[in-house]
Design a protein around this nucleic acid. Structure first.
Lengths: 405, 405
DNA sequence: GCATTAATTTCACTGCTCGAAAAAAGAAGT
DNA sequence: ACTTCTTTTTTCGAGCAGTGAAATTAATGC
């Protein structure tokens, strides 16, 4: 049933995709350079770029190169994305805020609005109504007739259902079970994609650090939750939910601390901000997690632990231990060469590192293959947004522009 | 650098591969049926089969279909693999025996030799010398001039090194670190592939149960070791070590029972035969594992537990708990729709099932998506051999015959 | 024998890539 | 100003694989 037949059409699509992919990864470049990086002949590059230009997907840019040294010969004409070819709306849904960004096909941020959220937000209004209102506003504020909005991409937390159009469970109150994905498809008549935050993290890390672009990486977010995304030799295999995990809800201690998800003993229950806080103040493990921990409080705790406060430091040790054993257990199934710690918790990496390393050392894979490189990345470069952006633009490249018309 | 360029050559390879794949999966069939399953046009099928026949890779078989009902029209001519197109040597290296099988391109077992092994075997002779001698013998015993031996595939246990040509660690004594893979390549001048047993298990399960062919499955071997292979929506992604895991050496209890690998608290240390035995007889957890447990002893223990022996039953409960929590933790990273338990331990499934289910229930993914289907398969159908066979033949199909010449 | 039916093959055509040669666009030298 | 280089792009004629439609082949049924 599956039609993997290859014909001249699929050849064209593949090679167009290759060209668009090269431009996306390495930025604008000359046709000759494109031939070099893609491996296609100059003749084909000419044909492909000609089509792409005719369709308004890419455009010729300033013929300038670098008047650097003596540059003999015909100067190269750079080709790059036509920013007006498409626009995408990117939505980041978080526990305490929703951020909507409008970006163009060149990846430039056009506009952005931010709206605070609270646990009651989606009780008062439905996610569908909220998103339609916000998206319509964002769109109207940037009326640009020639630029078609092509996609809506939403970063969410929780567990997606089979077809990836809604959430089966989410730490964001009243979000699970609402079919807002399909509602938006219907209302706007556009492709809408939901992405797990952890997965975007992995995608973002890949784009932000060129050295990791083709490596196997596990990116761990530590903060109000614990999440993880994986890339395998540079690939986030296929579409759908792959590369996303429920790392934060991997069991750490059977029947252990109470997690926000309602289960007991999850990694998150020890390593997310509320878990550390609970342990630092010797609150019983079975106490219901605080709904939200102010960032200052969490950072204050880090400062105290770094200043030598025993109970605070101990809480971070426990967090490191939970993350470390979680990673050690993951390594038995999937062993990345790099592990990235990002999010607010990255600041506490120093407090957790020893325990993480110790736990990793208890994995046979690590003893044999050596420990993976574990590094903490401060969050400032916004891997989630970057991941959402690149993922969405890449989808437009490949699905819409390499495919038809 | 990566050349993913598509041209008419890659089109041909892809479609040839499609045809060979259809024949491999569904067996011999008529050209019309091939067109149907592959999605290629009749014209292309004619061209492709013509080439394949000219190269002696496939052949026309008896024109008979079923003279069943009234069969009007031109009778279909079945096309199927030419058994003499190739032969492969399959080696299964185990702790206590080596089994070498010679198979033809049609997948028919031509000859097989079995040699007992013991922990000293590879001290007395090197793995290289042993394998060369055995393989040469097997080959000479089946001198068939027209049938070229194309591949040697070896099933091993342990951790492969980066390029998959030798073992960095293995429970088989004196096997790790010996470059027998490359030695065999050099001696026979053939492609040699090493495969983790767990991975073959997954491959085999896929071929033995058609219903699982396109599902996501984790196949767990329980016996003298605990191993696992995974398939993801029918794909064992790419080549190399993927789909293989070190599930048996996933940490279950920090600083827990001593495992054969030297680490402490591995799943295997509770769930492999030696672990169960140790617990059944209340031998301290830190006692060095027995080098090999006779199958009768293990099966006797199962019988006693089933007959109501408390300590034996308890040991199997602990084993189930270890496997269950291991699976539960794996599910946070990779959640298959089916879990298969195979190997000698499958017979004890009833004794472990309650604990396995209980542990799985503690995973958030299971609470949300429901428990995966967990079933035990007796070993009689030899998933490892089947996996090794199909993996190797498929490689010949795709790499040698869909590719060049 | 002739009509009917179903499997294959043949044929003319399309679309894509490729290598080689030609054209284009400046820089450098005289 | 003109010619010679040099490097980038485009043009041109193959070559190849796939496709749909029409033709051919090989049996059955009457």
């Amino acid at each position: 049933m599956a039609r993997n037949v290859s014909d001249s059409d699929s050849v064209r699509r593949q090679n167009r995709g290759l060209v668009l992919g090269a431009l996306r990864t390495q930025g604008e470049m000359a046709r000759t350079a494109l031939a070099g990086t893609t491996g296609l002949s100059h003749a084909s590059i000419t044909a492909i770029t000609h089509d792409l230009i005719a369709q308004g997907i890419v455009q010729e840019l300033a013929t300038v190169e670098k008047p650097d040294a003596r540059m003999r010969g015909r100067p190269a004409t750079l080709v790059g994305f036509c920013r007006m070819a498409a626009a995408a709306a990117l939505v980041e849904l978080d526990v305490n805020r929703a951020r909507l960004s409008l970006v163009d096909y060149g990846g430039v941020l056009v506009d952005r609005i931010e709206t605070p959220l609270n646990p009651a937000s989606f009780e008062e209004t439905t996610p569908t109504a909220f998103l339609i209102e916000r998206l319509t506003y964002l769109r109207s504020r940037n009326a640009a007739p020639g630029v078609p909005l092509r996609r809506i991409a939403i970063s969410v937390q929780g567990i997606l259902d089979r077809d990836g159009m809604s959430l089966k469970w989410s730490p964001i109150a009243h979000l699970a079970g609402k079919p807002f994905g399909l509602d938006l498809v219907e209302h706007f008549g556009l492709p809408v994609t939901l992405h797990k935050r952890g997965r975007l993290l992995a995608e973002g890390a890949r784009w932000l650090d060129p050295g990791l672009h083709d490596a196997s990486v596990a990116t761990v977010f530590v903060g109000s939750t614990v999440a993880m995304g994986m890339t395998f030799r540079g690939q986030i295999t296929g579409r759908g939910d792959e590369g996303a995990t429920e790392f934060g809800h991997m069991n750490h201690v059977p029947n252990g601390a109470l997690c926000r998800c309602g289960m007991r003993g999850c990694v998150e229950a020890y390593a997310a901000d509320y878990g550390v806080l609970r342990n630092a103040y010797s609150v019983p493990e079975t106490t219901l997690p605080a709904p939200a921990v102010p960032l200052q409080e969490y950072e204050g705790l880090i400062a105290r632990a770094e200043a030598g406060d025993r109970s605070a430091a101990h809480a971070f040790n426990l967090a490191g231990r939970a993350i470390g054993f979680g990673l050690s257990r993951m390594m038995a199934v999937f062993d990345p060469s790099h592990i990235l710690i990002v999010g607010p918790g990255a600041r506490a990496f120093g407090l957790m590192q020893a325990e993480i390393t110790a736990a990793l050392s208890s994995a046979l894979v690590c003893r044999i293959n050596g420990l993976p490189t574990v590094v903490a990345h401060r969050d400032e470069k916004e891997p989630i947004f970057k991941g959402l952006l690149m993922k969405t633009l890449t989808e437009i490249d490949q699905a819409e522009f390499a495919g038809l018309v």
